[in-house]
Amino acid sequence: MRFDKLIFGLLLICPFAHAAPYIPASGSQVLEKLPSRNDPTQQASSRLRAQLSQNPDNLSVATRLARLYINTSRIDGDPRYLGHAQAALRPWWDLPRPPKEVLILRATILQSNHQFQQALADLDTVLESDRDNGQAWLTRATVMTVLGNYDEAGKSCARLFRLAADLVTQTCLANVGSLSGKASDSYLALSRALDSHPDTDAGVRIWAFTLLGEIAARLGDDVAAENHFREAMSLASPDGYLLGAYSDFLLDRDRPSEVAALLKSKGRNDALLLRYAIALKAQRSSLTDEQTEILRQRFAAASMRGDTIHQREQSRFELHLLGDPKAALQTAQRNWQVQKEPADLRVLLESAVAAKDKTAITQVMEWMQKTRLEDRTLKALLEKAKEKA
């Protein structure tokens, strides 16, 4: 499999922002800045759309356009592009066994929408006939990691050794290892891999540096974490996942003014708007209420649509901006049934502590013991909870 096709799916598990109705304060208020027609990505998508309109059954054009939309959704944090990607694949979308290229793209879109079991089914179908499909193994590793199935995630990463660039394989393995009792070893192995492969694609290096920043932060090495996040941001315009990870790092270190400056123009992305509003509240800004109301309307609209992919963000919203720990805990528990990343565990623990729910606190403790997750912040929260018990 060509390497350039392998890397496009990296980090698609990050939270995507759903656009929702908002009533502006005045007619002059800027709600959204649309991409320029001179933007190369917009020009490329326009050309492909024109070609596809002439021949909707052209698989090559359809998959190229879908990949472009998926990558744009990752960069901008705009889920509408996932809908555009699905529309490009419409002739094959509902087929039980569409072409392999469509199966992988469909799995990528499904996992981005938290339809993990359906995504795994598509990936397994691909791997039944093509055991050397690196993109399928990488996406499978991503899904298994989100589900907290680290044994299966590690096995999927290991299949990449002869199918992908070494840095892709090492980053995949380090991600799994850092969540299952091997954080220090994973950090060192990934650091060495980055040093050994300075010419690897920038997108992969951003992924690796971002992961190093997250691992270092969980281990309590703030200096290293900051350096890694800044290195990632220097390689290209940061996407929503990187901005969110770095913003969380800054918020945890009581640096809200930097978060506000970083995210001021990112309000189209719900996950980033949430962090912006939390930063504003920490500074006692007069803009807090306005941004909180925008988020409230967006979450209400998502609820009316039956959209549940933003439960992690909704729980943080309820806890940190609405001050409602019981509602936050209920949302966090529903979210935990779907996905089990460190951020999901953290909001579950924070809301459980705030709601004084010993059962939920014990649930977090048992998960950390089971997986051997190393996280300084979570450990400190658990210690405080024990002291208050």
Rank of each mutant, 00 (worst) to 15 (best):
F3V: 14
G9F: 03
G9S: 13
L10I: 11
L12N: 12
C14P: 07
C14Q: 12
P15E: 14
F16L: 13
A17K: 03
A17Q: 07
A17R: 05
H18P: 09
A19G: 15
A25C: 03
Q29I: 08
L31K: 01
L34D: 10
L34Y: 04
R37Q: 14
N38C: 09
T41A: 12
T41Q: 05
R47K: 09
A50V: 09
P56K: 00
L59G: 10
S60W: 00
S60H: 05
V61R: 04
T63Q: 05
R64M: 13
Y69R: 02
I70E: 13
R74C: 13
D76Q: 09
D76N: 05
L82D: 09
A85E: 05
A87L: 13
L89H: 00
R90E: 14
P99W: 04
K100S: 15
V102F: 01
I104F: 12
L105Y: 01
R106S: 15
H114I: 07
H114R: 13
Q115F: 12
Q115G: 02
S129P: 01
R131D: 15
D132R: 03
D132H: 06
Q135K: 12
A136G: 05
L138R: 00
L138H: 10
R140W: 10
V143M: 09
V146Y: 03
G148H: 02
E152W: 04
A153K: 01
C157M: 04
C157A: 09
L160N: 10
F161W: 10
R162Y: 14
D166R: 05
V168F: 03
Q170T: 14
T171H: 04
S180D: 15
L190I: 08
D195I: 03
D199S: 07
A208L: 04
E214M: 13
I215T: 15
A216G: 08
V223W: 07
V223C: 12
A225K: 00
A225T: 04
N227M: 13
F229V: 06
F229L: 01
S237A: 08
P238N: 05
L242E: 02
L242H: 07
Y246P: 00
D248L: 07
F249M: 03
S257K: 02
L262D: 08
K264D: 15
K264S: 11
R268D: 11
D270T: 06
D270N: 06
L272R: 00
L272F: 01
L274I: 01
Q283V: 06
S286M: 12
Q291L: 13
Q291F: 13
R296M: 02
F299S: 10
A301Y: 12
S303I: 08
T308W: 07
T308Q: 14
E313D: 15
E313Q: 14
R316G: 15
E318Y: 04
E318S: 12
L322C: 10
K326I: 10
T331L: 13
A332Y: 02
Q333I: 12
R334Y: 09
N335M: 10
Q337L: 14
Q339P: 11
K340S: 14
E341G: 01
L345E: 11
L348A: 08
L348T: 06
L349G: 08
L349P: 02
L349W: 08
E350Q: 13
D357H: 01
T359N: 12
Q363N: 11
M365G: 13
Q369I: 02
Q369W: 00
T371W: 05
R372I: 06
R372F: 07
L373Y: 06
E374L: 05
T377E: 14
K379R: 08
A380L: 07
E383C: 07
E383M: 05
K384M: 06
K388G: 06
